[in-house]
């Protein structure tokens, strides 16, 4: 299964980036092989508005089925929901550890955004 993880760096050893839409990088990882692609999220990071929406559309495009992140706002959540991407929020630590924890099973999928939108 492919999953997306927000990351402060380009490797699995990086710290998870708590922000979704404005994360530094988004890693799309194959949970079986741990092969991954790192996407520079610079455009969204500096977007005036709609960063979460665009990041959500991007990870859906890369066939991620699950997103592991810290905080997910309402517009991003709505987009992920429409795209069928499940969200595990409130994550922290090294990306690789977050993935291993997810692989152990029992992840609680978010039913709603855990961060307010901002104007």
């Amino acid at each position: 299964m492919k999953i997306a993880v927000t990351s402060q760096g380009k490797s699995l050893d990086s710290q998870l980036d708590p922000r979704f839409g404005r994360a530094a990088y988004i890693l799309v990882v194959d949970t079986e092989t741990l092969e991954f692609e790192a996407f520079d999220n610079d455009t969204n990071k500096n977007a005036f508005k709609g960063a979460g929406i665009q990041a959500a559309a991007m990870i859906s495009d890369k066939d991620a089925e699950v997103l592991l992140t810290g905080f997910c706002g309402p517009n991003a959540f709505e987009t992920l929901n429409a795209a069928g991407v499940k969200v595990v929020s409130d994550q922290s630590g090294r990306v690789i550890d977050v993935i291993q924890r997810f692989k152990q099973g029992g992840a609680v999928y978010a039913q709603s955004a855990n961060k307010d939108g901002h104007w």
Partner: peptide
């Protein structure tokens, strides 16, 4: 449409397009 929108108001997904009217 999504690429031209400076305000991220459109999300083109695989089988669906979302419009965020407030943006």
């Amino acid at each position: 449409c999504m690429d031209i929108c400076r305000f991220g108001a459109l999300a083109v997904l695989k089988k669906n397009v979302l419009v965020f009217e407030n943006l």
